[in-house]
Design a protein around this nucleic acid. Structure first.
Lengths: 340, 340
DNA sequence: AATAGTATTGCAAATGTTTTCATTTACGGC
DNA sequence: GCCGTAAATGAAAACATTTGCAATACTATT
């Protein structure tokens, strides 16, 4: 095929109008006569013309993209969030630029920069805490930004998320209320992850009110993976003295714990209670159903999309942060402590 | 702050050189004197200049973006794929434009269009089969494209994936070889999903060789979700006559089946054998470990990234499709059929 | 100190659009 | 058929870059 580049000028020629008119027929169709519009449409179709957003963006017109940077895609947590965010933001006419930084906030900065080069209309980051540099960049470029997943009354940018401290507090309070005293904690690495750190703090605070705490030997840090959690709990349960409750930083770790206990022949919740945080898809249908704290990822994603869209379209209007309240979901993995 | 827009001209002024030199110092640094480059760098830093890729793209320079369209993000399958693809493609200097179509190939077309408007340098789609329109679009725009997940010797574009027919065949063969005859099939909806359809066909073919087939009443179609699968299997097992093996179209459905069986007090694999396909993270550590077929998502993602990158950088060079061979992973959910 | 050759730099055109402003066209009333 | 007004269109400037070509500034020779 004679692949003459088809630009707006080629279309204009084919439709026997000026480029201006073609442009107008896209951007302000009401300004061009219906018959002309039809001619143009025909030409567009015939030539297979596709608009060039790069050329538009140059005019200060919005690029129609929103940057989303997550720690990683393949944790159930974020997958759900990304999905709902992307659905909602597409609905609003934007496309997502996605990248992951693997919990390395320095990389997050680099990626942010790259996204700004692409002139994204807005940015969404996971978590409240980020490098000062990153915030500075976003500030200086004046890019509408939303912080996801974690809520804070006062954060550098508008936040949409849950109260992770409270989420942790809820499980701590629940387990404490069930009279457990020999409690293990299973958390992912806390560095670069303000969500996990806050949950952790919430758990400790709640437990402290019962005069209980997680002893150091049962304070386990494990990579965010089902397998790692399973191994850790298997080791944990093979020791001389074992806990009667295991509080997990999130549902995936809890699943791992549950599998480990099942394998070890320990019955849940009679022998050991287990809690998660997140209420990921699957936790409800796990057997036994996981007692956890619901943090509605889909809701956060959808709300975040709206929030950022309105920040983009009405930059001057202050938009409030959204707190999605976490709630305890009682299922079958917890029981009152009883000495055997 | 006096937010005078900082463009390349502002930088040039600040560094007391011409815009051309600034541009060159970015794109062909070897052509500009080291001392000049330093002056420019300083100016860039001081002004907080960020390059505008839109303005570059207009010159036919690559946009540095690759479009990735998946059916949905929040299935374990794709999350893993997206993660590995994105890691690898970032490494190669590209950024991902991500969107999901929810198994609606018509939407896929629309999204493809949108991505072309953004002048992505390449595209990656899931599956071999797509609307003729979509292919036409990609062809006419001459965009390097890779088809993921499913392999075919002969496909419209280069493919990187596994042989899903064979994956299905493997489980069918395995179950058939274990002498099962009362077999149920649990598959996701097949429309718009060539992967599932092929697995399905593979299973049937293998089973047929043993003279067995999945009877219609046990041929169950269920949404891709753990909960739906669990419910379906719960119903299945509450009937008069029950199967001795359940072949699932993927691991998530198998997990659901396993939970359902556990709840029903049916022991696996003694009473019922279960198989998955995919070997998602978690299947190994499930208790009991799920017998499944490994389709290495990470490998596919990484290879796909390389493939598309080389298609982009060397457009004339033909690149071959990659077949990632699926292999049966024997764990603890299958046993020889024995009449009780 | 002049010359040739090379390394740097600047000028200006080009990229694919949008938009302002001016011009042309169409329409309704006389 | 003419006029005034409103609707539709076109011309040209603007957007932020890159790049081919020409001009200038060095360097090493002689």
């Amino acid at each position: 095929m004679k692949d003459k580049k088809v630009d707006i000028i080629a279309v204009a020629k084919a439709a026997r109008v000026s480029p201006s008119t073609v442009s107008r027929s896209f951007n302000h169709p009401e300004l061009v006569k219906a018959s002309t519009r039809k001619k143009i449409d025909t030409a567009v179709r015939r030539l297979g013309y596709i608009r060039n957003r790069a050329a538009q963006t140059i005019h200060g017109i919005r690029s129609g993209t929103v940057g989303l940077i997550v720690p990683t895609v393949d944790h159930a947590i974020f997958a759900e969030l990304i999905q709902s965010f992307s659905e909602a933001i597409e609905e609003l006419g934007f496309t997502i630029l996605l990248a992951s930084h693997g919990y390395d906030l320095q990389r997050e900065y680099a990626i942010t920069r790259k996204m700004l080069e692409h002139r994204v209309d807005g940015m969404a980051l996971i978590g409240i805490e980020h490098e000062a540099e990153t915030f500075g960049l976003l500030d200086s470029q004046n890019v509408p930004t939303v912080l996801l997943w974690n809520y804070a009354k006062t954060s550098h940018f508008t936040s949409v998320g849950s109260d992770n401290f409270r989420a942790g507090w809820l499980v701590g309070h629940h387990i404490g209320g069930l009279k457990h005293t020999r409690i293990a904690g299973l958390f992912p690495p806390l560095s670069g992850n303000d969500r996990a750190a806050q949950r952790r703090a919430g758990v400790e605070t709640a437990l402290a009110a019962f005069g209980v705490q997680i002893p150091e030997i049962w304070d386990i840090e494990t990579p965010y993976s089902l397998g790692a959690a399973k191994d850790a709990v298997t080791r944990l349960m093979s020791r001389e003295v074992t806990p009667t409750a295991i509080i997990c930083g999130n549902d995936v770790l809890a699943w791992g714990a549950l599998h480990a206990l099942s394998k070890a022949g320990v019955t849940v919740p009679e022998d050991v209670s287990v809690t998660g945080i997140g209420d990921f898809t699957g936790s409800r249908d796990f057997e036994p159903g996981l007692t956890t704290v619901r943090i509605p990822a889909r809701q956060i994603g959808a709300k975040a999309a709206q929030t950022i869209a309105s920040k983009i379209t009405a930059p001057d209007q202050e938009v409030a942060s959204t707190l999605v309240i976490p709630e305890l979901v009682l299922r079958q993995t917890c029981a009152v402590f009883s000495e055997k």
